[in-house]
Design a protein around this nucleic acid. Sequence first.
DNA 1: GGAACGCTTCGGCCGCGGCCGAAGTATCGG
DNA 2: CCGATACTTCGGCCGCGGCCGAAGCGTTCC
Lengths: 244, 244
Amino acid sequence: MSTMISDVTIAEIGALLGDSARANMLSALMGGGALTAGELAWYARVTPQTVSGHLAKLTAAGLLALERQGRHRYYRLASPLVAQMLESVGAVAAIQCPPRHRPSSRIDEALKAARTCYDHIAGRLGVALADALVANASILWSEDGGAVTLHGEKFLADFGIDLADAMRQRRCFCRPCLDWSERRPHIAGAIGSKLARRCFDLGWIRRMKDTRALAITPRGAEGFRELFGIAADSTLAERKPKAA
Amino acid sequence: MSTMISDVTIAEIGALLGDSARANMLSALMGGGALTAGELAWYARVTPQTVSGHLAKLTAAGLLALERQGRHRYYRLASPLVAQMLESVGAVAAIQCPPRHRPSSRIDEALKAARTCYDHIAGRLGVALADALVANASILWSEDGGAVTLHGEKFLADFGIDLADAMRQRRCFCRPCLDWSERRPHIAGAIGSKLARRCFDLGWIRRMKDTRALAITPRGAEGFRELFGIAADSTLAERKPKAA
DNA sequence: GGAACGCTTCGGCCGCGGCCGAAGTATCGG
DNA sequence: CCGATACTTCGGCCGCGGCCGAAGCGTTCC
């Protein structure tokens, strides 16, 4: 009698996302790292036994993967597909409810400045990077996709990114990811991932503790300015510097 | 005290998706058309007063848009962003739970053969079209994005698609959408939309009643075979040949 | 070995929210 | 005006599922 096949499962996935504790846990894991049940309990602000039940459900549904390591159990997003799903849900959530109570704490401010989005860079820094690459004609943007130009291939190669690796043929794997704080796209996909990794390797950014926020190092501020034309004070300043 | 901004809203969107009646309604609207409350009640198999409550919530959340027309009220997905979110949730749902009870009714079979996915073509036909365009080097695929080649621009233009329209610069707007029945990507984005529209305009496909399934006309079978090399019997037949 | 730690399982409480019947409100046709 | 259609609002029932306390493994460290 059912007219569709996957509706039930859509509802099941939705129900998993529809709990605030689980949403918090997944958001924390969107940072890209693997976290223990205890850490996730801290993020979700519930007790370990509660989070344990959630983890069982999320893992059974295939949203999370478990890695055992001694007496620790590390949970991470099961696949980039899951990350992309969370991205798109977050994008819709951010777009739909703009006029919302905005407490905007200082940690929020750090998140808005720069953060990881699974495996790439988001926040003002992420959007600024995307803008810079568009401005210097390295990438082309559309609502549904992005492409790396020939000039962009050279620019990124000079920056130290190995394009040939995942690029059987040119001009792929560049995807826009709608930034929920900036409401504008930053770079996801293979290019976004490699770009972020390169910035980590260069010591331009580093993860902050207990949050998805990224700190831009002095070297990074210089590099972003010189190579990408990103002015540290205008786009990257954290307002009242420091808090967490 | 919250470490994130949008978590709550992610949970809210998830909760909206997490109800089977609402999931059915949204799936029905993924067909791309606008439907009345009564029709949605039929799809969701609940009473009109129940669906009314759901519609109020979905509209308030910005997932649906309402168009008044006389004494009818037509609801449709509020934006392509919403469609893309549903796509990605469906993709995760389809991937995660492969070994599932598969009643596989005949209407399911029609849906698997060819259906609309918001504004583009999905099912075996959609995947076959994507394969054909990849095979003749019209598009390039990667997990995160797609691109139209120079040759593809010509091929699609010859097919009657106005590329210059949405194409400020070339090679964009081609996005893979993971097909939940085939587990392989079909073409979404601006190209996918225009491709579908052109097939409708040519009378190659038409919508079937009360379902998202598409019927391939005799003319369409001929056209798909001659222009895209898609053999009607092997990929489009509604039999049970069970391709793997 | 024993204690501490991390995590899971069990049991029970409780509240949110989906569901429908009935009644109320718009729009159209006669 | 009246009835029909299409949809919404209201009220109440009821069940699913999240939450925590307590207890049960399994690891690690001394």
